[in-house]
Nucleic acid binder design. Sequence first.
DNA 1: CGGGTCTGTGGAAACGATTTCATGAACCGC
DNA 2: GCGGTTCATGAAATCGTTTCCACAGACCCG
Lengths: 359, 359
Amino acid sequence: MPKPITIREVAADAGVGTATVSRVLNEPWRVNPQTIERVKQSIQKLGYKPNFRARLLAHGNSGMICFLLSNRPFAHAVHGQVLQGAAEQAELIGIQIVYACCTYDADTQPSDIRLPQLLAARGLIDGVILAGTNYANIVEAMEQLELPYVVFGTNLINDDKPAPRSAVYVDEQEGSRRATEHLLALGHRQIVFIGDTSLPWYRRRYQGYCDAMREANLLPLPPVGKDGADAVRMGERSARELLCRGDEFTALVAGSDRAAHGAIGALREYGLKVPEQISIVGFDDDEIASLEEPPLTTVRVPADQVGAKCVQILNEAIRLGRSTQEKVCLPVELVVRQSTSIPKTQTINALYTDERSRI
Amino acid sequence: MPKPITIREVAADAGVGTATVSRVLNEPWRVNPQTIERVKQSIQKLGYKPNFRARLLAHGNSGMICFLLSNRPFAHAVHGQVLQGAAEQAELIGIQIVYACCTYDADTQPSDIRLPQLLAARGLIDGVILAGTNYANIVEAMEQLELPYVVFGTNLINDDKPAPRSAVYVDEQEGSRRATEHLLALGHRQIVFIGDTSLPWYRRRYQGYCDAMREANLLPLPPVGKDGADAVRMGERSARELLCRGDEFTALVAGSDRAAHGAIGALREYGLKVPEQISIVGFDDDEIASLEEPPLTTVRVPADQVGAKCVQILNEAIRLGRSTQEKVCLPVELVVRQSTSIPKTQTINALYTDERSRI
DNA sequence: CGGGTCTGTGGAAACGATTTCATGAACCGC
DNA sequence: GCGGTTCATGAAATCGTTTCCACAGACCCG
């Protein structure tokens, strides 16, 4: 194999010093346009490619960041969108993203973050984005790396310990409140929240539901849902449980689109039509939301913006050489589709359990 | 932040030269045991960590390889096992694995292999393992990187172009043959293969089925299966098609465990019992195989060995500094569980469509 | 016109390891 | 005892960048 061209040979060919070549590549604005032209021609002619290893040794940032994605079953579609948004922004500002999956072990101890740790220890990444993986043990491990990082998702923000670094999150509580308000505005009064509130995101979303109910002088009903890891199943089970118990309700606020999907399936089993007999709203504006039958009214999480914002903040932190403390809350948006409508004149269980009561 | 310790400070502390410290770390066998001890103590005392960037610049291999995994829906469980096997072997010989997912676009052009390309261009990886991604465009791209690589899966091996570099594969044809022979030995004669033979792995497996049938002086039946990307669905559809067509068969050779899973579901829909009325064998010994109801007789792919072998070969190639040409074929193994038994005295469709013919 | 600031530039010093090469000591066999 | 081999070692060269610093020339302003 031919020995690769070095910066020195380019400098010699262009009749300049190595420093100038380096500047042409990294700080072109401080070098004479004519010189730039000459150097660039030499680079082209010789087919020079900067040696990344050498650049790395001589005080460079690596230009790479690690995007740590949870492989947790929750909301993968949204995480994918976040990743996409991050990738685009990274492309824009010229940094590279290395992905890593961390296995999600909420209960058992340290999740697998060996890849980012390794890369960090070797000085190959400048920062880390934690997407949906901000559990105490991971955040702590990140802290020890002394590397800028940004967290997406706010599972720790409401807890006693404040999130120690920059974070991007979406106003889930507000989103859920608006979804509930939408149902209230349509005239619904008997509204049930579906979601496993032992999981922090469902808890926050339930809060929003409660806010809206109280504001309308209604008593919030207890949340329905257990074992939320598989959201679709949880939705199914929850809806069945409601129907079996004979609770009366005209609308459901599902804690996620997947939960909504499951619930709709269960309602259909019982011969109930959405939205004619039951209205339902989801959360996330997942891919499946618009494909749902009927298309799902839901709360859109601006996932691509989340990703982009993460990259921006991280980039800023890298530029400054230290972690920043920025907290960015992105607004959510209610997307009204066809799974919600004005309530029938009577509650669903009256309709369902007692045919005589029909007017 | 405190300036990190360099090799020079360690050398000074231990009263030796930097060369000796370097040797203690990299070639301890050529340095005096007493000196080793002394240097190690200094390293310990000062908390010295070698600077990876510097090591990289000074003629080092990165000690990292890239494991390129297809995100293709096929056989993810097996790929996971391959990855696991590779990880263990890598751990053993002290090299690190960086994962990358490539999006699978068989038809549209170059799949996304930017991450390995980037890492290779930057000299951060010493080699690449392509797991289930050996499609022409990717192999070609790898070729251009001038980096050792190993391919798992043999989709190109039987084609006109020979696989250009080392490859690890399993004898799928033989596996499928043995599975079929197992059914023949039990007394089955009407055996159908399920699998989309437009996909190369199903094609190879179908070949094995044909071999066994011909050897038993039976006419191989045409394969059943289309749109094989979603194996479970394909299995379902194929079994339904067989039953609808009224074809007579007592046993199925499924091209994958997932296909078998789908087929079993469809058979159950029609009230047919496995293995009492229909025997079925799978392929892969996927996680789901032993969880299947009934536990699936299948062909075990030694996935962990595949992963380990890939790493071994790649490591050897890296050591030699060039790609090798080794082709390793690992043996498969028939795992007999409970989805196969001797056939009923009559074919299933006679049983199913014509009650009178029961003896 | 002279002193200051600003630009553009090149030589050389990092960066922190590995590797080469020379050296001296120890050991071996005749 | 002596040339020759092996072993353990350290000084210095090397890897290919970036960055520091000095310097020359252009420009500006009073």
